[in-house]
Nucleic acid binder design. Sequence first.
DNA 1: CTACGGATTTTCT
DNA 2: GAAAATCCGTAGT
Length: 201
Amino acid sequence: MLSREFYNRDALLVAKELLGKVLVHELFGQKISAKIVETEAYMGIIDKAAHSYGGRRTQRVEVMYGGPGFSYVYFIYGMHYCFNVVTREEGTPQAVLIRAVEPIEGLEIIAKNRFGKEYSQLSKSNLRNLTNGPGKLCQALAIDRSLNGEDLCGKKLYVQEGESDKISIVSAKRVGIDYAEEAKDYPWRFYIKDNIYVSVK
DNA sequence: CTACGGATTTTCT
DNA sequence: GAAAATCCGTAGT
């Protein structure tokens, strides 16, 4: 798995380098894994789109103020979870939102979690919508509030190296942050070019 | 293919 | 009391 030091850097750098790596959740002795294909950097104090903008420090965002390499999971729109990786040292509240992944292992569990069906019964539309969004991948990988604050340098939820294929990275505006004034146009979303699981091209 | 609105509840003001 | 780092179904082109 990735070292604590990997996460102890600016979210912009970590967001780019997480692309192509593999997110793993071990649950009930089963392994669910998926390649990270889309991320967004949230740069903390100076970023109007970040939950920690201006040093806002509430119960919800507390984990962002802790050390690097821990998970930040929050509940949004009354029904979805979003999974982030906390970056930078204690006191500097940055994070990287994982926006989309490509399923690798545990396909049956993923299919069941998302659509309550066997993998072989999924429609073409089902397959395309398995993990191509922040809320969708949390449902697919069974990530919920109980995993908020989880140590990603542990054995339950972690990120490991992927295949060392060369990937082409695209930068784009972040999604769903129209309230963030000038910050809404910053090119702080990154994704793997031509990957079909990317949520917004 | 795009556009739109409803769902549903935590979180913060 | 309002907004939210989203998703899904339906209707229209």
